[in-house]
């Protein structure tokens, strides 16, 4: 069944049961959501969400479209406001607005489905902008940092180009480098491969897997089962604005407990 998922050289299911959560010592709570509610008009998109993500944990959020998973991801750096409840990052509750919010956002990296590279700036400037303008880093240091990160995600030779000259996969890797340049405590990925042509998905997932292996705390909204199996410690399944089920990836994919999850998995795995 898992052979049907598109990710790279994925081991057979029985080999992957190293169940990351159990044998791994997770750090202190880093992102804490408490009774978070949000409405879009009549629609109750986030219903009393409780979720804690620990330092070094890789959490995959999965679920049908409209389940609220993107909203959840975006709420964590307040690109979406919430109606009530609280969200805290590293012990600090999300400020409403202003300087404090900007500061907190600087510590939360965000990777978007549509990349959102600054269209009028070169790849290098995209990555140096945050460190220079938010962190006050010198141009020289920022460029050094940016070049290191661009090399790490494999687009070092594209530094002088404009985003529109790059492929989707390259743009998304630049976007990851741009987020990493802020040295974030946690990285949010909002369907990072959904807008990519199939042949470019793996180059982005490889970067994310490497990042996970280095111990980055990550919250990833994705449909990539291969990535979830390979890198995630925990899978959260959302439907209709609620967290329906959470489990280690292997457990979730082979023996989902809820009917809703079984239904969802059968739909995405049968082809």
């Amino acid at each position: 069944m898992d052979q049907s998922t598109p990710t790279t050289g994925q081991p057979a299911a029985d080999e992957t049961v190293d169940a990351p959560t159990s044998d791994r010592v997770l750090g202190a709570p880093l992102v804490e959501l408490n009774h978070v509610n949000k409405h879009f008009g009549e629609l109750h998109v986030l219903q009393d969400i409780d979720l804690t993500v620990h330092k070094g944990e890789v959490l995959v959020v999965i679920g049908p479209s409209g389940s609220g998973k993107s909203t959840l991801c975006r709420a964590i750096n307040r690109l979406e406001t919430i109606d009530d409840g609280s969200i805290a990052v590293d012990g600090k509750t999300l400020p409403e607005e202003g300087k404090a919010l900007a500061q907190l956002r600087a510590e939360v990296g965000m990777v978007f489905q549509s990349f959102n590279l600054f269209a009028h700036k070169t790849v290098l400037d995209n990555v140096t902008l945050g460190p220079r303008k938010v962190r006050g880093m010198s141009k020289k240091d920022a460029e050094e940092l940016a070049r290191t990160l661009l090399d790490r995600v494999g687009v070092g030779n594209q530094a002088g180009k404009m985003p529109a000259q790059l492929s989707g996969g390259q743009q998304q890797r630049v976007a990851i480098a741009r987020a990493l340049a802020m040295q974030p405590k946690v990285m949010l990925f909002d369907e990072p491969t959904s807008a990519l042509d199939p042949e470019m998905v793996n180059e982005v997932l490889d970067v994310m897997v490497a990042l996970a292996e280095e111990g980055m705390t990550m919250i990833v909204v994705t449909h990539e089962m291969g990535f979830a199996r390979k890198a995630a410690h925990r899978v959260v399944f959302m439907a209709d604005g609620q967290i329906v089920e959470e489990a280690p990836p292997e457990e979730f994919f082979t023996a989902p407990k809820s009917e809703r999850a079984r239904d969802f998995l059968s739909k995405i795995l049968t082809h």
Partner: peptide
């Protein structure tokens, strides 16, 4: 959104 997300 990207600008806000890096802390501007």
């Amino acid at each position: 959104e990207a600008a806000r997300a890096i802390g501007l």
